[in-house]
Nucleic acid binder design. Structure first.
Length: 431
RNA sequence: UCCUCAGUAGCUCAAUGGCAGAGCAUCCGGCUGUUAACCGGAGGGUUGUAGGUUCGAGUCCUACCUGAGGAGCCA
């Protein structure tokens, strides 16, 4: 008897197989049971007739509860009526352990109820599909950078101070006397790593203590941040475009089934091809003005602005050259127009907003020092960062891409919280 | 922090100021092709908390608690 995974069932057509999993749902018709079994690799309907298994074994399945652990044996059979194309005709059923009163029933539940039971919710078909797409996105990101000569150089999670003075940090007690902060970006360290290794990326969790209460925010999220020495804004935009095209392509290629289960309109994703429109902040402001939105030059785009902009295009867009005043201190000003910075945001279509933010960094020692002072940042904390400008400074740049926002967009989710196994939000620390 | 909305059976929701209801889940019974199966029956309630108005409050008023959506901020 071969032990098989449901995802491989097609290879076992006509054979006797053993499936080890859990009962997802049961429908019964007197002398025939339909058991939907899941084993982590997929879902499949197992058909059990009284005639085939006998009175005693059939009766055992009468009261089999949702999520009970079971091992079924039977013959794999192609069936046009089955959603996955295959069914198993059961010859034997073993109950490994019974589940009592599983709280997530096959009917509707509210988000709060499900979030309190996130550890069980991830057993559902939909949540599994999302987490598989997430896995593909992460794998795609790693393959993309590894295949292009980038070195993974991780940046610290405990940091001594803010990278950018503006956002809120989570403080943690660091032994007796010191306070450390959870990282909100690996970027400054990435710059040092790029000067050592040329092309680098970091990939890890990031923490923001912003009291944001929207469907686009988590307090803990995963971010990939590439950084390149001898790179300009155009190189950064090119890299961002290549990455997004590659990752979306990977999801379409390897996770078609999951996207289908999520009822994602994949024709929209198929349009994600190079080149992405590159529009300046000025042009974006003009588009918003023409659409009648109350937008004034100098401010950052709000969520409705980003949605309005992305509506104009069928693929992600690169918006570049933002006013320096709204951007971080380490952004390089445009030599031709110092009031704008050489930064770029990539906005996803369909109203999903910013998935990437980055740009060319300030490489000049004097100007960087001036900016640190203007932002009232403690110079001594940035001495190591200034060293990068003292010893062989070169043009360089990179960006950060939020994994959950990309997963959310690719899956077509309503809310970021489903794009990570255990979301951390303003009012959510359990489970 | 601000604005808006919501809280009723285990879950999802209904109930004009006038008897507390339905579907699902659970339990009992029926059904050999079901796809959130279906059909019949049963059990299941301190209407978020505290006060107030009223002959009478799930419903109106006040405060608080909890959650959701949005703003700001950002990936």
């Amino acid at each position: 008897m071969t032990t098989a995974y449901i995802e491989d069932i097609a290879k076992h057509e006509g054979q006797q197989v053993r499936l080890r999993g859990w009962l997802h749902n049961r429908r019964s018709s007197g002398k025939i049971h339909f058991l939907t079994v899941r084993d982590g690799s997929g879902f499949i309907q197992c058909v059990m007739s009284k005639q085939a298994v006998g009175e005693e074994m059939f009766k055992r399945a009468d009261h089999l509860t949702q999520e009970s652990a079971i091992i079924v044996e039977g013959t794999a059979r192609a069936d046009s009526r089955a959603p996955g194309g295959y069914e198993v005709d059961v010859t034997s059923l073993e109950i490994v352990s019974e589940a009592k009163d599983y709280p997530i029933t096959p009917k509707e539940h509210g988000v709060d109820y499900l979030m309190d039971r996130r550890h069980l919710w991830i057993r559902s078909q939909r949540q599994q599909a999302i987490l598989r797409v997430r896995h593909e996105v992460i794998n795609g990101v790693r393959d993309f950078f590894n295949g292009r000569g980038f070195i993974l150089a991780d940046t610290p999670i405990f940091t001594p101070a803010a990278c950018e003075g503006t956002t809120t940090l989570f403080p943690v007690q660091y032994f007796e006397d010191a306070t450390a902060y959870l990282t909100q970006s690996g970027q400054l360290y990435n710059e040092a790593n790029a000067m050592a290794l040329g092309r680098v990326y970091s990939f890890g969790p990031t923490f923001r203590a912003e009291k944001s209460k929207t469907r686009r925010h988590l307090t803990e999220f995963w971010m990939v941040e590439p950084e390149m020495a001898y790179a300009t804004l155009d190189d950064v935009m090119q890299l961002a475009e290549d990455l997004v095209v590659y990752v979306v392509g990977r999801a379409l290629e390897h996770r078609k089934r999951e996207l289908q289960a999520l009822e994602r309109d994949t024709s929209k994703l198929e349009k994600v091809q190079a080149p992405f429109p590159r529009i300046s902040y000025d042009e974006a402001a003009e588009i918003l003005r023409k659409k009648g939105l109350p937008f004034e030059w100098g401010g950052d785009f709000g969520a409705p602005d980003e949605t309005a902009l992305s509506e104009e295009f069928d693929r992600p867009i690169c918006v570049h050259r933002y006013p320096s005043a709204v951007k971080a201190f380490y952004m390089k000003p445009d030599p031709d127009r110092p009031e704008v910075a050489l930064g770029v945001d990539v906005l996803a279509p369909e109203g999903y907003g910013e998935i990437i933010g980055g740009g060319e960094r300030l490489a000049d020692y004097d100007l960087l020092l001036q900016r640190i002072k203007e932002h009232n940042l403690p110079q001594e904390a940035f001495e190591w960062y200034l060293d990068l400008r003292r010893y062989g400074t070169v043009a360089h740049g990179g960006f950060g891409m939020g994994i959950e926002r990309v997963v959310s967009w690719i899956c077509g989710l309503e809310h970021l919280r489903e794009a990570i196994p255990y979301p951390r939000m303003l009012y959510r620390l359990y489970p």
